[in-house]
Write a protein that binds this DNA or RNA. Structure first.
Lengths: 128, 128
DNA sequence: CAGAATCCATCGAGATACTG
DNA sequence: CAGTATCTCGATGGATTCTG
């Protein structure tokens, strides 16, 4: 267990870097959040973001492909015309979402502390 | 609580995006891991990475500044010559590290599953 | 409908050289 | 020692157009 913790340093393990990257990129967590629950089609998924901040199909496709490659999202194709493709979360994806939730919740809980730190830092910088 | 969970979608909250970005970028988590424990000086910190994958002072400086701005790392200057600057983790930083550890540990636990998903995906892609 | 192809702007990371 | 100043390069995000 302590040997595992040591892996937080060093990126000898590529998988770790990749999963952490999913947390950091702009869309992965949001897509995973939308894909949770009922299976959802590509265009419906795209529409979910239309209000807040629209995502291009180019970027949505790339994000989904990555998540599928990581085993977090599954893709099911129905051989009909027009095409029907459904995405949803895998077990691995659900666990990932759980951890993401935890950090997001923690961040929101301490939002005031973050903003205070930010203000103090800016004040120090301006002081010079 | 459920209203907080809703925030995983939508980036209305800038702080959330920024903290998740720290998890995702190449150096933040590793620097935080090294800064945990005893206070450490800039050059010593830089040396810690020299073996595995060296970090330029340019990048280390930027990473530390960001973490300081976020309130995860504190910076203490000693008015001596040559200069002496010590970095260490704040309380917020320790909590952040805790969550990062959790995800890293989880990732390593399921490393086999990730690699299997990867192989299957590549196989499917090649099949066409 | 579910993407693929093309092109462009921006940004993070890194190498290198220099300084109070 | 602890950075700053410049520059380059590749990856990410995005807009737009096209297609089986």
């Amino acid at each position: 267990m302590s040997s595992m913790n040591a892996a937080v340093g060093g990126d000898d393990c590529i998988v770790v870097r990749e999963i952490l990257s999913r947390l950091g990129d702009k869309w992965s967590v949001r897509v995973i959040h939308q894909v949770a629950g009922e299976p959802i089609r590509f265009t419906d998924l795209k529409r979910r973001f239309e209000q807040d901040s629209p995502i291009s199909s180019r970027v949505l496709t790339r994000t989904l492909k990555q998540l599928e490659r990581d085993g977090l999202v599954s893709r099911r194709v129905f051989p009909v015309v027009p095409p029907r493709v459904e995405y949803n979360l895998t077990e691995l994806g659900k666990q990932f979402l759980h951890y993401a939730q935890e950090i997001v919740d923690w961040t929101i809980e301490h939002q005031n502390a973050f903003e205070a730190a930010r203000r103090e830092f800016e004040a120090q910088s301006a002081e010079q």
